[in-house]
Structure formats: C-alpha cells, structure tokens
C-alpha cells in the first residue's frame, strides 16, 4: 500500500505551530508590557494562524477524500481552528486583547498535544463501516459532479457541532480563570500592573456566559446528532457507552453553570468554578475517554 499523501497538511501544521507560539508570545508580551504594537502583532499572527489551520483542513479533505474530522489529530485541528475563529470574532466585537494571552495559550497547548500524537494518529486511515454515513440526498446531488465522496452525513455534522461546542468552552475556561484572578484583586482593591489591564470582573463574567451560551447549544446539537447517527449505526439512540455518558456529564455541568448564574449566592465565583470544572470534563471526554475507558467511540 502506498503512503497516503499527507505532506501538504503536515507542512501547514508545522507552520501553524510556529504561528501559534508567536501569537501567544506577542499576546503575553502585550499583557506584560502593555505595548500596543505587540497586541497588534498578536492579532495579525492569530489571523495568519487561523488561515493556516483552514489550509490544513482543506488539504486533509483533499488528501483523505472525506470530511477532515475522522481521527483524533484531525479533530484537534478542527478544535483549535474553532477556538481561533471564535477568539478572533470575540476580539473584533469586544476589543479586549489581553484575553488573547490566555485563550491563545490554551490553543498553543492544544497544538502541542496534537503535534505530540504518534504518526499513526496523523496518517489517513480508511473509514471503518460505522463511520461511513452520508446523507443520500447529498450523494445524489454530488454524484453527477464526481464529488460524491465529499458528501457528508450525520457523523460529520455531529463531530463539527461538538467541536464548535468544545472550542467555545475552551474560551470560556480561559476567561473564567481570568475572572477568578481578577475578582481577588478587585476584592482587595489593590493596584496591580498585571491585572488592572484585565477587563472588570463583571465583564469577564459576561464574556464567560456568552461563550457558554454558544457552546451549550452546539454541544447539544452534537449530542443529538450523535444520537441520530447511533440510531442508524447501532440501533439505539442512547446506549450509555462511556463517551456518551461523559458528554452527558459535561452537558449537565454546563446546565448547572447556566442555573448558577441566575441563582443568588452562586453567580460570579462559584459559576466560574463550574465553568472550569466543565472544561476539565471536556478534556476528559475528549482525551481521557479515548485512551482510558473502553467503548464504541474511536475518538470524537
């Protein structure tokens, strides 16, 4: 069997890795020194990194001949791509560049973990039978064009929605950490060069909510489309396999967060801790379940 051609996507991955490190370094530099040009550099590099990640996804699709989210490595790329796009959109809208120091650190760590994956995770494997679900109507539309292999199905939709959700939670996690730092300094009303440049805690709390308000519906769509797919592939929409159960656990933690925010005595700090717990659950759901717990899910 000849080696699948993953050269282009691997090349873009290596470049992206550098862009993420640089962008993170400049954002942290901006936070520590408050020099505007550093913030500008951070933003520009993040745009470049986002573009480079988009190229990885496109090349993976071309190289593998299916939607580029079928293994751990590809899904990491999708996840980091979504964090980047989500962050850039937030920066445009709310203009808080210090957030970049934290969000891009999370993104860079994710890049490193994807980079450290053994090569067999990065290579292209043929899809096993259960992963081949395509919407018949799309296949029919694409067939005359010879593009039917790019038809997508519930599974692609499921992975895509889930990872948009994870990405939103990752951003919320970074913001929640900033919130907890910030509120300690506000409580002591002490000057602090490092943390005065954070947005006020009230704003951080809002931002954390807004990102979860995006992530929660997406995670829900991910779970429901996963259930629809399972109903086709395994015959039941819910079988309590560890991956499913962990996604339900994560979903419940964020449901608790939403209610904490409307409960006296729970908004603010406790809500922020729930958001952090939620993201830890996401990490376990994403990496822990795949490597530690037995189950039907391969990776996503």
């Amino acid at each position: 069997m000849d080696q699948p051609k993953v050269i282009m996507s691997l090349m873009f991955f290596t470049m992206s890795l550098a862009f993420y490190f640089l962008a993170t370094a400049f954002y942290i530099g901006y936070w520590l020194t408050r020099k505007d040009w550093m913030g500008q550099a951070g933003t520009s590099l993040t745009y470049v990194a986002g573009f480079s990640m988009t190229m990885i996804l496109i090349f993976r699709a071309v190289e593998s001949g299916h939607a580029p989210f079928s293994n751990l490595y590809e899904s990491m790329v999708l996840f980091i791509w979504a964090v980047t796009i989500g962050y850039l959109w937030m920066e445009r809208k709310y203009k808080f560049k210090v957030l970049g120091a934290f969000v891009m650190t999370v993104a860079s760590l994710a890049m490193v973990s994807a980079w450290l994956l053994p090569f067999r995770f990065k290579n292209i494997e043929p899809l096993n039978p259960a992963l081949q679900s395509k919407w018949n109507f799309l296949v029919k539309i694409l067939e005359p064009l010879g593009l039917e292999k790019y038809a997508i199905g519930w599974l692609d939709f499921h992975v895509f929605a889930t990872f948009i959700g994870y990405a939103a939670f990752a951003i919320s996690f970074a913001v929640a950490i900033m919130y907890i730092i910030k509120i300690r300094y506000e409580a002591r009303s002490k000057k602090s060069f490092l943390f005065d440049s954070f947005p006020p805690s009230k704003v951080l709390d809002e931002l954390s909510y807004i990102t979860i308000a995006w992530g929660f519906p997406f995670l829900t769509v991910g779970i429901v489309t996963g259930a629809i797919w399972a109903n086709y592939a395994w015959g039941t929409y819910w079988s309590w396999d560890p991956k499913e159960t962990w996604s339900l656990i994560t979903w419940l933690v964020y449901a608790a967060y939403l209610h904490a925010r409307v409960t006296r005595g729970w908004r603010g700090k406790k809500a922020a801790y729930i958001s952090i717990a939620g993201f830890l659950a996401v990490i376990f759901l994403y990496w822990g379940v795949s490597f530690i717990l037995p189950g039907l899910h391969a990776y996503a």
Binding site: T245, W246, L248, I249, L252, A256, W266, L293
Partner: peptide, 21 residues
Amino acid sequence: SLKFTIFVIMTIALVSIIGTV
C-alpha cells in the same frame, strides 16, 4: 429552588461517572 436544581444536576453528573469506570 434553583439551589436544589444545581444540586440534583451536579449529583446526576457525578454519579454518572461511576458507570463509565
């Protein structure tokens, strides 16, 4: 009460872990 809701939701989340182990 919403506090009770948070308690119930978190309890379900936590005990669900057992069945994955």
